[in-house]
Design a protein around this nucleic acid. Structure first.
Lengths: 192, 192
DNA sequence: GTCTATAATAGGATAGAC
DNA sequence: GTCTATCCTATTATAGAC
């Protein structure tokens, strides 16, 4: 899941953690410099357009992660329940049981959204498609599956905010586990 | 809902809009100054502890709004459906159909959470209690009602993030309207 | 490709007059 | 209670040596 040491990928991974914890506005070059072990000038060598470009690289990395750890797992062989559990475990790890913010949310609420928006859209779009594919497999019709995916991601994102504000991990855990609803019989049935 | 012109309450209302749109880290004194029509020194006259104190005043205002526009409405006379519709309309207005971020979320993802955290906790706590009271009235047992409230608020918060990232208003609208589930018959029944 | 040094600016905050 | 002017620091970014 993580990159080799010394590579550019590793630099991006380190930037990732800073943007995740601080958000776009809160992340300073000083902290990005410390986290990577590179001087500011070296960072500008790799990312001539500065912080915005670093953030975009991080967004690409986030999209990669979504593709490999969620979409690909969703399309693996094995029972639906098993695959969903695997996705839940991965998200639980990435978000440190809800204690770590989402890097996407930290970018979405930034001042520079304009430049980053297409990266954000792709990240959330891929994520949504991954969950949507699971929902369809469970028998949901297309529109309902798409809504389910978006709604579930929203719930997860909001849970991270609530936990950041209140400290209570319950909301996040419930949100994560609610994905298992897809593995239940009859979930695709229309409401009575 | 809004304060008289020239009062301190109106200053806070104007600060509110800046923190809502920019978040804590993104809000600069320059912009807060412009929004209020006061010089920086005048702002410091009203808020000697600076930006953090301004943010705290805004959080108090947000809590007031939650109490008067959600909790009080929830406890009004009238049918459950009517009261819920009123709450939905108010939130739809505050969040400009999902196009405006939540000021609470913009504080939760900030660097100075330490000082503001108790204010945030209270705001979300009151909000949750308001929704919880509705859920209980609909027949849900206490724990389930609390979970319903937290989960619904999380979903709404996440929907705002998704809409900020993707531009799609559907998630937010669905999240808002899902509160109407409480007005349906049999919602308190245990799942089959 | 990384460093030291240095700009140039924006940010938060204060002094003191009115 | 508001203003102008100023301060100090952090921040983003660049120049140029190695």
């Amino acid at each position: 899941m993580f990159a080799e040491t010394g590579t550019k990928d590793e630099i991006v991974d380190r930037l990732f953690t800073v943007f995740q914890k601080r958000g776009f506005d809160g992340a300073s070059l000083t902290e990005l410099s410390r986290a990577t072990g590179l001087g500011k000038s070296s960072l500008y060598h790799h990312f001539p357009d500065g912080k915005a470009q670093m953030a975009q690289a991080v967004l690409q990395r986030a999209t990669e992660l979504i593709d490999t750890e969620i979409l690909q797992v969703a399309q693996m062989s094995g029972s639906m329940k098993t695959r969903i559990r695997k996705i839940i475990a991965m998200l639980n790890q990435i978000y440190e049981n809800g204690r770590a913010p989402c890097v996407l949310a930290g970018m979405a609420t930034s001042t520079l959204v304009g430049d980053l928006q297409q990266g954000l859209r792709k990240a959330f779009g891929n994520w949504s498609e991954a969950i949507e594919s699971l929902a369809k497999e469970s028998g949901m019709p297309p529109v309902r599956a798409r809504h389910f995916a978006e709604d579930w991601i929203a719930r997860l994102q909001g849970a991270l905010i609530l936990q950041a504000a209140t400290g209570d991990a319950g909301v996040f855990t419930r949100a994560l586990n609610s994905l298992l609803e897809l593995a239940k019989e009859g979930v695709a049935r229309d409401p009575v």
